[in-house]
C-alpha cells in the first residue's frame, strides 16, 4: 500500500501548508505536516496551523510536487537583476522635492 510521496522510511507523505490569513491576502507558507491524503492534510493543517483564527483558507501541496531552483546555482540564476538599479524608483533622484512624483 503506497500513496505518492511515501517511501521506505516515511509511510505518510509530507505536505507543505499555505494559509491565507484574510480575504485579499496571499496564501503564505505556514509549515509542513504528515497526512495520508490531501483531505486529511487539510484537516490536520486546520488543527495544526489555525488554532487561533490564523486563516480563512488553506492550501496543501505534496512536498514532492514542489520543484525548487537549484540552490547551488543561485548566484547565476538570480544574477540578472543585479546592476539594474534603474528598475527601482529610488534610482531617479533628480525629481527630489517635486510634489506628487
Amino acid at each position: 500500500m503506497s500513496t505518492p510521496g511515501t517511501n521506505d522510511t516515511e509511510p505518510w507523505p509530507l505536505w507543505e501548508v499555505f494559509v491565507r490569513s484574510s480575504r485579499g491576502l496571499s496564501h503564505l507558507h505556514a509549515g509542513s505536516l504528515h497526512a495520508p491524503d490531501a483531505e486529511m492534510a487539510v484537516r490536520n493543517a486546520r488543527d495544526l496551523y489555525t488554532r487561533r483564527n490564523e486563516g480563512v483558507s488553506i492550501w496543501v501541496v505534496r512536498s514532492t510536487d514542489i520543484t525548487t531552483s537549484d540552490p547551488d546555482a543561485k548566484g547565476a540564476f538570480f544574477e540578472s537583476p543585479r546592476g539594474k538599479e534603474y528598475r527601482h524608483a529610488s534610482y531617479y533622484t533628480e525629481s527630489e522635492g517635486v510634489k506628487h512624483l
Binding site: 516515511e10 509511510p11 505518510w12 509530507l14 504528515h34 488543527d47 495544526l48 488554532r51
Partner: peptide, 27 residues
C-alpha cells in the same frame, strides 16, 4: 484542553523541523 492541544501542535512543528534533517518521523 486548549493548552494540551497546543503541546501536541508544538511537538508536530518540531518533528517536522527534525524531519527536514533527514530523520524519519517513525524512527
Amino acid at each position: 484542553m486548549a493548552k494540551v492541544q497546543d503541546e501536541a501542535g508544538h511537538g508536530l512543528y518540531l518533528y517536522s523541523a527534525a524531519q527536514t534533517l533527514g530523520t524519519p518521523r517513525d524512527k
